[in-house]
């Protein structure tokens, strides 16, 4: 047994010797020992995880090579898109945009007081960690799951989708925004507090003016994300363009699918560039 432990120790020490970089000697004789590179730990872990994933997902390179070409066959069938189908998608497209707009506004608005409650400004430690904990759990729910739950409660349709987007935005905005609150300059807060204001009043008058720009920017960022989210919500029946997309794809009417994807891409690009421009001006 003792011999075995000695052997393991020997192996480890010789490995350490192998990966330790040679000491550097300065011209005045001082010796500096460089640290062992973290790569010796990171590379084996990443390699292991990659190999494990490949065997787990049965990822097959030969399949990719043999069938991958089909992707381009399907894309080519979408071209030219069926422009005549446009009248059928304009309403669901607008409804998709409105779903994400309304959902984002509601979610972002609700997030404000809860971000305050999660921040260091909340004096109750228990309260702060309770709120943070609740939202950590709530954030683990993907938007599609939220949509399915909303549909069970409210029935299929755009309302369920809007609700799902609002809750989703709400939970992530709370985290994003409370972290911003905690980086704000606390000096003005102390000043307003010392004038006899309540903590809420001091927060509103001294912290929020520092953060409005970033708050609107975060909201717009969420809007961008939610447009893409809203487009897939239709797959589970929660309204928007996704319903039409799923249906046309199921029927394999590729020219119609082509038009839907084209309109979707243009919409996302337009909204993203508007949002980016506003955010650039805000910050």
């Amino acid at each position: 047994m003792a011999a075995f432990i000695a052997m393991i120790k020997g192996i480890i020490s010789s490995m350490l010797k192998w990966i330790t970089p040679p000491p550097l000697v300065l011209s005045n004789g001082k010796v500096v020992r460089p640290a062992i590179s973290a790569m010796w730990i990171i590379v084996p872990i990443i390699s292991f995880l990659t190999l494990w994933s490949i065997s787990m997902t049965r990822f097959r390179l030969d399949m990719l090579i043999r069938r991958g070409g089909q992707f381009f066959v399907i894309v080519s069938r979408m071209i030219p898109p069926n422009y005549a189908y446009f009248d059928n998608i304009i309403t669901p497209m607008i409804s998709t945009i409105l779903m994400s707009l309304v959902g984002t506004i509601i979610g972002a608005g609700l997030a404000l007081p809860f971000a305050y409650a999660s921040s260091e400004l909340n004096q109750s430690k228990i309260g702060k960690f309770a709120v943070r904990g609740f939202f950590s759990i709530a954030r683990t729910l993907p938007v599609l799951v939220l949509a399915v739950i909303a549909m069970i409660i409210f029935g299929a349709g755009a309302f369920a989708g809007t609700f799902a987007i609002a809750i989703f935005t709400f939970t992530i905005m709370v985290k994003m925004f409370f972290e911003l609150i905690d980086t704000a300059d606390m000096g003005p807060f102390e000043a307003i507090l010392s004038s006899g204001a309540s903590r809420i009043q001091a927060f509103w008058t001294s912290i929020m003016p520092q953060l409005w720009g970033q708050y609107y920017s975060l909201t717009l960022y969420n809007l961008e994300m939610n447009i893409r989210n809203a487009a897939i919500l239709g797959y589970v029946g929660a309204g928007g363009i996704g319903i039409v997309l799923a249906e046309r794809l199921a029927w394999r009417v590729y020219p119609d699918v082509g038009l839907i994807l084209l309109v979707l891409m243009i919409t996302v690009l337009v909204i993203e560039s508007i949002s980016r421009e506003i955010r650039r001006r805000l910050l």
């Binding site: 003005p188 000043a191 307003i192 004038s195 006899g196 204001a197 309540s198 009043q201 001091a202 509103w204 008058t205 001294s206």
Partner: peptide
Amino acid sequence: LAARVADM
């Protein structure tokens, strides 16, 4: 004006 919020 922020000094006035305490009275509001």
